[in-house]
Nucleic acid binder design. Sequence first.
DNA 1: ATTATAGTTCGTAGTTTTGCGAATAACGAA
DNA 2: TTCGTTATTCGCAAAACTACGAACTATAAT
Lengths: 99, 99
Amino acid sequence: MEPAEVITEEQKSIARFAKAMGHPIRMYVLELLSKQICCYSGDLTEVLPIAKSTLSQHLKELKDAGLIQGEIEAPKIKYCLNQENWKLVQDLFNGFLNT
Amino acid sequence: MEPAEVITEEQKSIARFAKAMGHPIRMYVLELLSKQICCYSGDLTEVLPIAKSTLSQHLKELKDAGLIQGEIEAPKIKYCLNQENWKLVQDLFNGFLNT
DNA sequence: ATTATAGTTCGTAGTTTTGCGAATAACGAA
DNA sequence: TTCGTTATTCGCAAAACTACGAACTATAAT
């Protein structure tokens, strides 16, 4: 018999998303993408005070969390919000915060 | 001359809150407190599959982030949401997610 | 085929997070 | 005062995070 799981999948899911948002650089990227359709990694490198390799890691984390997606437009990569999951994020956080 | 700061205080602030929400245990506590006025650490220990000392650390993180507050009711401690900051969190996340 | 451009991956280093049990502190009750 | 209850702090270990530069991959252009 399994022990009753007190923590819901929904809570795990929000925590996962929140964790990905839990860094200023990543928040910057997310907010930018929520206001314009897309951006290129190079645009970010020029403006953000971190090394390219570090930015790359942050973008990977956002991608792994399902918050953004990258599309190759050689030799650049175009990043956008992951629209599907973005809706989910909105719903989850709205439900959690505004009830 | 300072380099222009690209990351806003607001983004840092959201990231700080998000980071605190970025763990299933902490999400559980927050959601519980958003649905009932308060709870005691002991209630949580009974139900959550972690050691008391670990829970204590998670509660401390939530407190340090300004999300909850504890009030001594010897020998227990009563935890509630930090109402003031909770409003701020709602506003920040609503602004970020729903615009 | 070579070169230039754009990003990722690797190796490394230091810091932070997560978790536990033992020890400690604070307080009310007997 | 002594004991029981409740929760925090300490010391430790393992894992994850953050960051950098160097090396590498892939593609477009010359």
